[in-house]
Computed example of a mutant assay.
Amino acid sequence: MEIKRLSPSDAEAYWELRLEALKNNPEAFASSYEEAILKDDPIESTARNMKSGVTFGAFEGDELIGVITLVRGTGIKVRHKADLFAVYVTPNKRGKGAGRALLSHVLEYAKHQDGLLKLSVSVVSTNENAKHLYKSFGFKTILIEEKALFVKGNFLDEEHMVQFF
Rank of each mutant, 00 (worst) to 15 (best):
95 G>Y: 03
95 G>N: 09
95 G>F: 03
95 G>C: 10
96 K>R: 15
96 K>L: 15
96 K>M: 14
96 K>P: 02
97 G>L: 10
99 G>M: 04
99 G>A: 12
99 G>K: 02
100 R>D: 04
101 A>I: 05
101 A>W: 01
101 A>P: 02
101 A>M: 13
102 L>N: 01
103 L>M: 15
104 S>Q: 15
104 S>H: 14
104 S>W: 07
104 S>T: 13
106 V>Q: 02
107 L>W: 06
107 L>P: 04
107 L>S: 08
107 L>A: 10
107 L>R: 04
108 E>C: 10
108 E>H: 14
108 E>D: 15
108 E>W: 05
109 Y>N: 02
109 Y>C: 04
110 A>R: 04
110 A>N: 07
110 A>F: 07
111 K>A: 14
111 K>N: 14
111 K>C: 12
111 K>F: 13
112 H>Q: 15
112 H>W: 07
112 H>P: 00
113 Q>Y: 05
114 D>C: 06
115 G>D: 12
116 L>Y: 09
116 L>R: 09
117 L>K: 14
117 L>G: 05
118 K>C: 08
118 K>V: 11
119 L>R: 02
119 L>S: 02
119 L>N: 01
120 S>D: 11
121 V>Y: 00
121 V>I: 15
121 V>E: 00
121 V>C: 05
122 S>T: 13
122 S>Q: 12
122 S>V: 09
123 V>C: 06
123 V>F: 03
123 V>G: 00
124 V>E: 09
124 V>D: 02
125 S>V: 03
125 S>K: 05
125 S>I: 00
126 T>H: 13
126 T>A: 07
127 N>W: 01
127 N>Y: 00
128 E>P: 03
128 E>L: 04
128 E>V: 05
128 E>R: 03
128 E>Q: 08
128 E>M: 03
128 E>C: 00
129 N>M: 04
